[in-house]
Design a protein around this nucleic acid. Sequence first.
DNA 1: GCTGAAAGGAGAATGAG
DNA 2: CTCATTCTCCTTTCAGC
Lengths: 155, 155
Amino acid sequence: MSLTLDDADHRLLAVLQNNGKASLQELAEAAGLSQSPCWRRIKRMEDAGLIRGYVARLDPKGLGLHALAYVFVTLIDHREETIAGFGRLVAREERIVECASITGSADFILKVAAKDPEDLETFLMKGVLATGMVRESQTHFILRQTKTRSPWPLL
Amino acid sequence: MSLTLDDADHRLLAVLQNNGKASLQELAEAAGLSQSPCWRRIKRMEDAGLIRGYVARLDPKGLGLHALAYVFVTLIDHREETIAGFGRLVAREERIVECASITGSADFILKVAAKDPEDLETFLMKGVLATGMVRESQTHFILRQTKTRSPWPLL
DNA sequence: GCTGAAAGGAGAATGAG
DNA sequence: CTCATTCTCCTTTCAGC
C-alpha cells in the first residue's frame, strides 16, 4: 500500500488535487514526462488506493446549505454498543458531512450542514441528542470558511 | 447565482459528488434523461459556480500524513491587521487544510495535516504560535476519521 | 525505466429538428 | 428533449533509446 513517490508523482498529484479532469497532456507537461508514463504512474497510484477517486466539488451555499457548524459530542457512556450505535447514526445522517474521534474532553467532532440555523437545531435536537447516546454537545457555528477542503500537503 | 434545482439536477449532483469522472452515459441514466440535456444542465451548474470543479481525492495516510488535528485558535487581538495577517498565514501554510471562523470562545478552527505528531507540534510552535498572532490554542488530535469529506446533503 | 508515434474507440460538445 | 455529427482526448500498443 505504501508506495514510494518521486517528484514527478508529487507534481501529478498536485495537479490532480486541483483539477481532477486534467488531461494527460496537461499532466505530462506538469510532470515533465510524456503521456504514457504519466498514465502508468496515475494508474499505479489509483490501484494502490492513494488516489481514492475523483469527485465534483460543490458550493454548499448554492445547494441552500446556509448553516454549517462544528459540533463536539461526548457520548453518554463508552460501551461498544453505544459507540457502534453512534457510528451508525453518523453513517446514516447525510447532514453529518465529517466525523472524527479526537483527543480531549469530547469524544467526537462533527461537521454538520443544514439549510439554516433552525434546520440545524432541529437536526441536532431530534436527530442526535434525542437518541440518548449523547451526554454533552457543544456547537460552533461557522461564520466564514476561509479555507475549504484544500489539497493535502505533499511533504 | 442561486439557481433552481429539480430532481434531475439533484440526481446528477449526487452522482458527480461520488464520481466526478462519471460519463454522460451514466449521468443520463441516473437522471432519467438523455445525454445532451444532461450535459447542458451540468454546464449550467458549472457556470453558476454551483459545481466548483473536479478534484482527485487522495488518501492522507498514503501521502505519509499520519498526524491530523483540529486546532482552536484565539487571536491576540482583533485589529484588522492581525486578522488579515492570520488570513495570510492560513493561505500560505499548506499544512492547514481547512480554516473557519466560528462562534464560541475561539476565533478559528483549523484542520491541520502533518507527517507525524512531532511534525505537527513543530509546525504549530514555529509556524503558528511563534508569529505572535495567537493568544491561545487548543489541539485535538484525530484518532480516527469515521466520515471524511462526504458529499453535501441535497435537502 | 523512459520516449515518441500512432491507432482505435470512447465520450464530450454542438447544432438542428 | 432527441437525434446526429464533429472532434477532442483517452487508452493501448508498438518500436526504440
